[in-house]
């Protein structure tokens, strides 16, 4: 089908009749993702300063290699030579990378496809959306739910562990930071679109389906979190980086963790 009045058509990148600052949103997303994504990558590859008893950086949990500190070591793979965070980073990268919200964010900010609504984009490429390799792999999003929830379980364990200091029960600033972090990550993970589908989105008739009532309530719960999925995604991303930074600063002795209780 021939599109409309060719003389009005947005042919070039950025061409539009819009007069608002449409570029502000994609630009800030591009910068934000670069900043926090960049920090996370850097932190993951460090392999040091990720543990300051009783705090473990969320990027490093569960800590699976033999290089991990004894207090938090699990399995202890001795064949692994790199940072232990790299062993689990595929889960986080996969979950966030195939997330329906982040897809929107980076398709707009980095792929410029489209940069913003009703704004021209480069027309050189043949658009295939998510119908062909590699983007068709985005459909694997649901496979990252289970590993992510397992990691989330470890993070909750780490948070509880952060109440146990060498002198017994206590609360430090780091404890609170870990707690906020795990709550935000849970809000993000449990608002997942794929989880929403599995919970009850695939059911047409709740009153006729097996366990329909329970699935409806579950679906309602996930839907509630899902409504602000983008906000959860951003806040949890920022806070998880700040949490790592805090642990890193404490571990390297730059700051000392103030005890509250």
């Amino acid at each position: 089908m021939q599109a409309s009045a060719t003389l009005l058509q947005e042919r070039r990148l950025g061409e539009t009749l819009r007069r608002d600052r449409w570029w502000a949103a994609p630009l800030s997303v591009a910068l934000g993702l670069a900043l926090f994504g960049g920090y996370a990558t850097w932190a993951i590859f460090q392999g040091t300063n990720y543990f300051a008893d009783p705090y473990l950086s969320p990027f490093y949990s569960p800590c699976l290699s033999s290089s991990c500190p004894g207090e938090v070591r699990l399995l202890g793979f001795d064949w692994w030579r790199f940072s232990p965070a790299v062993l689990i980073m595929w889960v986080i990268l996969g979950f966030r990378g195939t997330c329906y919200y982040y897809r929107k964010a980076y398709y707009r900010a980095y792929f410029i496809d489209p940069p913003a609504c009703a704004v021209g984009e480069h027309r050189g490429h043949r658009y295939q959306g998510e119908t062909a390799f590699p983007l068709i792999l985005q459909n694997s999003h649901r496979y990252f739910i289970l590993p992510s929830l397992i990691i989330l379980g470890f993070l909750w364990y780490d948070t509880l562990r952060a109440f146990l200091f060498s002198d017994g029960f206590g609360i430090g600033v780091g404890t609170l930071i870990l707690l906020v972090n795990v709550v935000l990550l849970s809000g993000y993970a449990f608002g997942c679109h794929s989880l929403r589908h599995l919970a009850g989105g695939g059911v047409d008739c709740f009153s006729c389906a097996r366990f329909g009532g329970a699935r409806y309530r579950l679906w309602r719960g996930v839907s509630f979190l899902n409504r602000k999925h983008a906000l959860w995604a951003w806040v949890s991303l920022i806070v998880v980086c700040l949490t790592d930074l805090y642990v890193r600063l404490v571990a390297s002795g730059v700051v000392s963790d103030p005890r509250i209780l």
Partner: peptide
């Protein structure tokens, strides 16, 4: 229907 062509960039929801 070609649902795969949608790259969920949400302009439809905005308008």
């Amino acid at each position: 229907g070609g649902i795969g062509y949608c790259n969920i960039t949400k302009c439809c929801t905005e308008v």
